[in-house]
Structures are given as structure tokens and as C-alpha cells.
Nucleic acid binder design. Structure first.
Lengths: 219, 219
DNA sequence: TAGATTGTTAATCGATTAACAATC
DNA sequence: TAGATTGTTAATCGATTAACAATC
């Protein structure tokens, strides 16, 4: 009956954390040792109460009335919450155009993610390397994941194959899946699927444009 | 005072549309001329009332009790809503590792997005091509956007430059911004910013893992 | 007919925001 | 001190879900 995590953080709040982090680091780098919630809120276009609550949910040191919060303290509190300190290894399945893109993208290390290998069904790709990372055949998936203790799988295969790849990953001990295929994946309880569905983003962009431009064109 | 759009669709509902589309197309391709809301709901792990409401919000033909909805009718209703029929041109700013990745990604056309050119500050890149798309210097941004009537800008520059690039895009007549930089962008009213913040996604993955693995390791 | 499915109204749920006393 | 900022409780808001009558 030990509850070490005091406040559980909502999904939404968690997703705001990287924005706080970015703003706080910028503030620190320009010399602000102390920062107030209203300041951050204004910068990020958020409500100040929300910012205060979010800060309270990750940090155990309270803010000081009239002054604010200690910048460096908040930064490390958020980094601790997000686990950017301990690096997470991941495998990527699907070395197509998007897969290759992610393999060569150098931005993930900053967030503690490192893609260790890629897998693909195409025998023309397997055995080779992409951006210094090996591309292995699918039958090596389970042994690699088990041996290297990998718990994150990145899916960049076509929609039609995503579910079977997902099943294979789950069967190999993966606990969290970053899904770039525009499909819903069914998984057992306890497995997190984070969808990075570009189609969903484009849906919003496209709708906004048709609303802004549509009326003019139709008249 | 003409209201042609009857029901306004929530952001969340809009983001579910691509999933419906994928599921409906798959159903149609395997011969299902009629499909029911409970079927789709089960497949996508959603509530069936939600699915019915979502369908009702895009389609003007009602479903038939006991049978369901006409698959093809729903598909075209969603496509119409998302504007996948009319293609949207976009420019991309920042031909770094992520920018190049998106330029070479062939998956966007299916959603009606076509990236026509890229821009970058680096004189080593400008003048060249990436995946058959020209890379132009920043001072050409406004004229290109104006002449080609471009309303979508994709930002793949480092966080520190994202805001100024955003301002330049807005100043060039862009109405919707797809932002891959892990920063909040301030924009005037009427401009849509869709954030594709990988850091925010990683935050969720990372938290889930530390919850699943953390307790074991700490004991 | 019987029963699955539809559309809709009302209840629930969770997150955001407003109000306000406490404090440095 | 005066006033900006904090933390917290209560109100609001919006989306999801439950309940149910209508219908083929």
C-alpha cells in the first residue's frame, strides 16, 4: 500500500510539460533564476492557474508568493517526471520512407530516446545499414528485444501490416508503441499505444483552410 | 447570415475521422456495402454512441435502424469533410534532418497535401534540390507564397528560430501552420497552428514505461 | 413479430477556469 | 505596508457515455 507518486498527472498536463521545459530553459539561459506562473502562462498562451497546478503536480518544492518558482528547480522536476534522464532504447519496424526519416533524425537523443536497430520484411534492405543502424529481418525481432531488454517499438510500416507488427512487438516484450501508421491498433491491457497520426493532424489543417477560404470561393 | 455547415465538428471528432476512413475503406474493400456503428466502434475501441454522433455530424444521409450505414456514402462524406478531394499546396521551412525526411516522405499526397518547395537559411543547401523539390533562400519565401497562393507552412527549423519563421510565414499569407518545432508559437487570430510535437508524444511513452518498469527496479 | 440498430435527450465525467484567502 | 503571486476550493465548460423511445 505504498503510494510514492502523490499526484497523478493527466495526459494533457504531461503533454504540456515539454513546452514548459522549453520555456523554462530559455528563461534560465537568459538569466532568470526565478520565474512566475503568470509569466510562463502568457508566453505559452495558457491559463495561469493551469500552469500553477501543472507545476505543483511535478515539483515538491512550493512556489513563493510574490516572487514565483525557482527556474532550475522546476526544470529538473520536469526532466525527472518525463524521464529524460534515463535513456530508453527502441526498435523501429518498417524501413520505408518514413522509417528511414526517423532513423536519420538526430533529434530524439535529447529526449532520452535511442533507436538501436530497424527491422524490415524486404530482403533487399535487411543486412544493410541506414544512418549507421542495422536493418534486420523480422525473425530476429523477438530475440533482439528480449536480449537487449527493449520496451519501445516504433511502427512505420504500411497500415495493412501495422496490426501484425504490433502483435509481434507485444509478443517480444515491448510495453510502449509509437505508432506512425494511420490505423487503430488493438493491444492487450497495459500496453501503451501513442499514435502519431499525421492524417489526423492534416485533417485539422485542412478543415481550418476550407473554413477560411471556402466561403470566399463559394460566393 | 448563411449557415451552410449545419453541425460544427469538435476537434476531437475531426481527429477520429481518419481512423473511421481507414476502417470504412477496409470494410468496403472486403465487400461490406453496409456497416453498423457498433461494428466500427468495436474495431476502433470507441463508444458506439460516439461513432453514431460522429457519423451524423459529417453525413446528411441517415443510417437505417437494424441495418446500419452505407459504407461508400460514409466514406465520401468523410473525405468531403476532410477536404482530401481538393489538394492543398504547402511550403516547408528548414531543410535539416527532419525537413528532408518530410520532403522525401511519399505519404502525404493521399491526404491531399503536396509540398511544393523548401526554404532554408543555409547557403550550402539553397539552390539545390531534395527529393526533386527545390530549396530556396528565405528571401524568396513571401513572393513564392503569394504567387502560388500557398496557405500551409510546415516548420522544421530548430526551436530557437521557429517563432521568426512563423512570423515570416504569416506575413506571406499562410493561414495554417504545421509546427514540428518543440515550441509554442504565438500567432494572430485566425491562424491555425497544429503542433506535431514529438517531445510531447515521447513524454507519454516515457511516463508509461517508468510506471510499468519503475516499481520493479526500485524494489 | 422480435430484436438489432438508429437518433436524441439526460447524466456523468474530467479538465479548465474563476474566485478568493493566505503569504511574502 | 501594499500588491503581486501563490495554492485551493468551487463553478464552468465541453466531451463522452448511459438511457430509452423510434424504426425497419
Amino acid at each position: 500500500m505504498e503510494k510514492h507518486i502523490p499526484v497523478s498527472i493527466s495526459k494533457q498536463a504531461l503533454q504540456r510539460m515539454p513546452y514548459y521545459l522549453q520555456a523554462l530553459r530559455a528563461a534560465r539561459d537568459s538569466g532568470a533564476e526565478i520565474i512566475s506562473a503568470p509569466t510562463v502562462a502568457a508566453q505559452l498562451g495558457l491559463n495561469e492557474v493551469q500552469v500553477r497546478k501543472d507545476f505543483a503536480s511535478v515539483s515538491d518544492t512550493a512556489g513563493k508568493p510574490k516572487t514565483g518558482f525557482q527556474t532550475s528547480e522546476l526544470i529538473s522536476a520536469i526532466e525527472r517526471t518525463l524521464g529524460y534522464d534515463n535513456s530508453n532504447d527502441a526498435v523501429l519496424v518498417g524501413a520505408g520512407s518514413l522509417g528511414r526519416a526517423l532513423l536519420s533524425y538526430r533529434g530524439f537523443e535529447a529526449y532520452g530516446l535511442s533507436i538501436v536497430t530497424a527491422f524490415d520484411v524486404d530482403p533487399n534492405l535487411t543486412g544493410g545499414e541506414i544512418s549507421g543502424k542495422q536493418v534486420l529481418p523480422m525473425n530476429k525481432l523477438e530475440s533482439i528485444c528480449r536480449n537487449m531488454n527493449i520496451h519501445i517499438g516504433i511502427i512505420t510500416v504500411p497500415a495493412s501490416q501495422a496490426q501484425s507488427v504490433c502483435d509481434a512487438l507485444v509478443g517480444s516484450g515491448v510495453l510502449a508503441i509509437w505508432n506512425f501508421a494511420p490505423v487503430h491498433l488493438n493491444t492487450p491491457d497495459g500496453i501503451l499505444v501513442q499514435n502519431e497520426n499525421m492524417a489526423a493532424s492534416l485533417a485539422l489543417l485542412s478543415k481550418h483552410l476550407s473554413e477560411r477560404l471556402g466561403s470566399k470561393l463559394n460566393d
